[in-house]
């Protein structure tokens, strides 16, 4: 078993790593790069806690090999705030108390950001279906949905 050398871009930074062929992108992020903001809730693509974007496309990093990241642009929760300035979604999640334990929060934020980039004015139903792959066991989703819709409204006004 020989490791694979991968050159990729993560949150705008050029990153190189070695990974085993069977290692997922999530394993690489967490165990090799120390980026533990992406979480493993299931490892089977059913919970969304490991959500990242690859070339702008929302994916589960547990369902992608680290080797596949060669030459791609990866965005994770760690790249969402601009320095000390939170993304409107992050701010709205705090204002709405849209997290309780917070384990699903990074994945939901990454997914919600991808939604608002595609659809700046989603309906409640569109938001609920877009986020159906992000399990949250604490909140019952109510405040999560409100926070996303509110962030969308604020971002529309700002633009």
């Amino acid at each position: 078993m020989s490791n694979i050398h991968v050159t990729t871009t993560i949150n705008g930074d050029s990153v190189e790593y070695l990974c085993a062929p069977e290692e997922t992108l999530l394993d690489v992020l967490r165990d090799r790069l120390g980026m533990t903001g992406s979480k493993e809730g299931c490892g089977t693509g059913d919970c969304g806690a490991c959500s990242v974007t690859v070339d702008g496309r929302l994916v589960c990093s547990c369902l992608m090999l680290g080797a596949e990241a060669e030459g791609r642009e990866i965005a994770t929760i760690e790249g969402m705030a601009a320095g000390e300035v939170l993304h409107p979604l992050q701010r709205k999640f705090l204002e709405h108390a849209a997290l309780q334990c917070g384990i699903c929060t990074p994945g939901i934020l990454v997914a919600a950001k991808a939604l608002l980039e595609k659809n700046p004015d989603p309906s409640e139903e569109e938001t609920r279906y877009w986020l159906a792959g992000n399990l949250c066991r604490c909140t019952g989703y109510d405040k999560v949905i409100r926070a996303v819709m509110d962030a969308a409204a604020e971002m529309r006004e700002a633009s």
Partner: peptide
Amino acid sequence: TRPLRPDGIDKVTGRARFGADMS
């Protein structure tokens, strides 16, 4: 009242350390 939670920023930025996040 409804102040922001003190652990909030850690939790929306991915910095908060959960069980599997320590080495």
